[in-house]
Design a protein around this nucleic acid. Structure first.
Length: 266
DNA sequence: ATTGCTTCCTGAGCGC
DNA sequence: TGCGCTCAGGAAGCAA
């Protein structure tokens, strides 16, 4: 499941591979993968002017033309190379670049999407995202105000992309463990010290995870088809025992697995 | 306004 | 060996 650290790893790796090259073709192998209603041929070729990230979205901009917005959802991969399509078992789309290289969009479960956003238009979901968790905007005052009237469990609230953008199931579990806060605790009942701990743990865990190239539980790969290594540093997600010796508890929240230590998290 | 349920989809793992 | 079942989950869409 690519979350912020995984998406950031892909974006950072791709930037010096694709910027300045021209997109000469966009091929869709599975209908519904590339979302666009217009004349694509009229927009190509288009020179890639930048690649960035907002939440879990990859944003590829072109000079004076359209923007590609890519979401990998759970099993999507965006891999750079020059090989044959047959190398990929679940190829859904491909971008052809002018030097013969390609960006392959491989996705087992097909939930991932590539949205072509025409010049001058904005992609609505991006406007609804909360602040970046590694930005100044994600601070104690912001979070306190945002969750004051939210009685839902803090785990659910942290997964809400309009509260903070880019966190998913793995990192929210890890952040709450590092914060020493139970995922079942009502967000509206968090005291200032707990808010501070969440902000602090969020930054430290995300930066650590980025430095390890993200987490590969099963499907995640970077732009070069390599796994991350942060899975070796997870404290609760998919773990059996806490460092304190107590068995990790596994429950369901908002339809997803939550892992926590009921001794270390209160 | 907020929350929760359903939907999309394939592969892995399990019991028999 | 192979079948059928369950599970994994991000976010949109909808209902309450």
């Amino acid at each position: 499941m690519p979350e912020l650290p995984e998406v950031q790893t892909i974006v950072s790796g791709l930037s010096n591979k694709i910027i300045g090259k021209k997109i000469v073709g966009i091929i869709e192998y599975r209908p519904g993968t590339v979302l666009f209603s217009g004349d694509l041929a009229g927009l190509l070729p288009a020179e890639i002017s930048g690649i960035g990230r907002r939440g879990k979205y990859i944003i590829i901009s072109t000079a004076h033309s359209f923007t590609l917005i890519i979401h990998l959802r759970m099993t999507g991969r965006l891999i750079y190379g020059k090989g044959e399509n047959t190398f990929f078992r679940h190829l859904r789309a491909r971008l052809n670049l002018d030097d013969g290289s390609r960006l392959y969009f491989d996705d087992i479960r097909t939930f991932g999407k590539i949205i072509i956003c025409e010049p001058g238009k904005q992609y609505e979901p991006l406007t609804k995202l909360g602040p970046e968790p590694l930005s100044e905007g994600f601070n104690a005052e912001y979070l306190q105000n945002k969750i004051r009237s939210r009685p839902a469990p803090v785990k659910n609230i942290m997964l809400d992309q309009s509260v903070v953008a880019g966190l998913g199931n793995i990192y929210v579990s890890e952040i709450l463990f590092r914060s020493g806060i139970s995922p079942l605790k009502k967000a509206s009942e968090l005291v200032p010290d707990e808010i501070d701990r969440i902000i602090d743990a969020t930054g430290k865990i995300l930066i650590d995870a980025i430095q390890h190239g993200g987490t590969t539980i099963s499907d995640y790969r970077n732009y070069n088809n390599e796994k991350g290594s942060y899975q070796d540093h997870l404290k609760v997600y998919a773990q059996q025992k806490c460092v304190c010796g107590v068995d990790i508890t596994r429950i369901k929240q908002a339809g997803r697995s939550t892992f926590f230590c009921n001794h270390c998290q209160k």
